[in-house]
Design a protein around this nucleic acid. Structure first.
Lengths: 230, 230
DNA sequence: GTCTATACTTGGATAGAC
DNA sequence: GTCTATCCAAGTATAGAC
């Protein structure tokens, strides 16, 4: 059952009406329910992992009976795929500013800021992603070997071009991405550990700000860039 | 012999591991079996998480019947604690070279190298740790809020001293540790993702070497340090 | 479309023979 | 100390009433 896109999860439900005229109200209602299921599922998958998550708990948090959830998503795996698709989209939509003609310092600073914002605003999505990868990505392989690999290669080519033009030190672009991903996502995935070390119950706004500032400073300076004028 | 599994939760005992030269035949046999159980358990916990791991699979991989495993470890949680202790020790034994009179560049470079070595040599232990933190550290809280927090505060005080003496740029020591942890451990925890992006089935020696080199370079330069003479 | 009740399966843990 | 057989709880999924 590997592959996110190979066999797409049925976001339209078990049996769509051949008749489109009934869409309106019903489809809206369905969309609302699916959204509340997705939110509950994301939380539970993040907390307990795929195996640990129980459909009954997800149903309870979404405020409907377990059997009803199985009406909307035939299997637990279908529901999981539904959640993952959302997360993949978040990932692939970052780093828009990394472009050949951009200023490297500005673009990288912006990218790091974007990733820290995601860590603060969507930590749960990040944890579902991390959990999947951590456990061997059995339901995620296609995304990583195709979409993500392509993404990195496109972005790395741009950085290579920056290097060629002498706009940035000669570093390995791919490992630079691994560095940016890890340093920023750690504030979502391992926020509990960081909060514990900082003596807090949970991270606060100034923690994220300091993190973004210091990560940006060290990486930019480490790559031979000066802080952007911003 | 009296030490039959049930009466003493192996977790908290000061009991040492494999050094069994002074023990009897029975204890030696017990230690061997416990070691094989630990190895199997570490693998299974890393792959499936705590909830997903089944004692039957652990028993199977350790080459003994399930009931027998429950003879050595009364509950799944006891076994998990047993595995965690080993990992905690690994963590707390790093960064010996971070000392007030050390050269910052040398000490940090060595620490980063040590962490990358761990990522390469003990990725499974790292993943069990990561999984525990990722899911809210329900069985790990005390370690993080006490031992680890103390550890970071001791080490951070040393770095503050370096800063005071002008040996290193003025950075936040704690967030520097978060940065070193995340950039290095990502090569264990998310090695599957990194390998996928690099187009490999698994990471190879040169990947770790390049990672260590680039992480060290960027962090040292980013902190205003020159590469150590080494 | 939604809910109640239930069938079926897996997995943690134990009893008791050897 | 070790193994077979078994109990019991939890969890996925479905049948069928409304």
């Amino acid at each position: 059952m590997s592959g996110v896109g190979g066999d797409q999860p049925e976001i339209d439900g078990p049996q769509t009406d051949a008749d489109d005229s009934s869409l309106g109200v019903r489809a809206r209602s369905r969309a609302r329910i699916e959204a509340s299921i997705r939110k509950a599922a994301e939380e539970v998958f993040a907390e307990m992992g795929f195996e640990g998550a129980s459909t009954s708990l997800i149903a309870k948090r979404a405020g409907l009976p377990k059997a009803n959830l199985h009406y909307y998503f035939k299997t637990k795996n279908d529901l999981y795929q539904f959640v993952l698709r959302d997360i993949i989209e978040l990932w692939l939509n970052t780093a828009q500013e990394i472009q050949p003609d951009a200023d490297p310092a500005t673009a990288l600073a912006h990218y790091i800021g974007q990733k820290i914002d995601l860590a603060r605003d969507r930590p749960i999505a990040s944890r579902v992603f991390a959990n999947e990868v951590l456990h061997g990505a059995p339901r995620f392989d296609r995304f990583m070997r195709q979409d993500l690999k392509d993404w990195v290669e496109r972005k790395s080519a741009i950085i290579e071009e920056w290097i060629g033009r002498g706009k940035i030190d000669q570093i390995d672009p791919k490992h630079l991405f691994f560095m940016i991903w890890s340093t920023t996502q750690t504030y979502a995935d391992f926020s509990i550990q960081i909060a514990a070390v900082l003596g807090r119950r949970e991270l606060i706004e100034s923690d994220y700000q300091l993190a973004a500032k210091q990560i940006t400073h060290i990486i930019l300076k480490g790559c031979g860039l000066k802080a952007p004028d911003a």
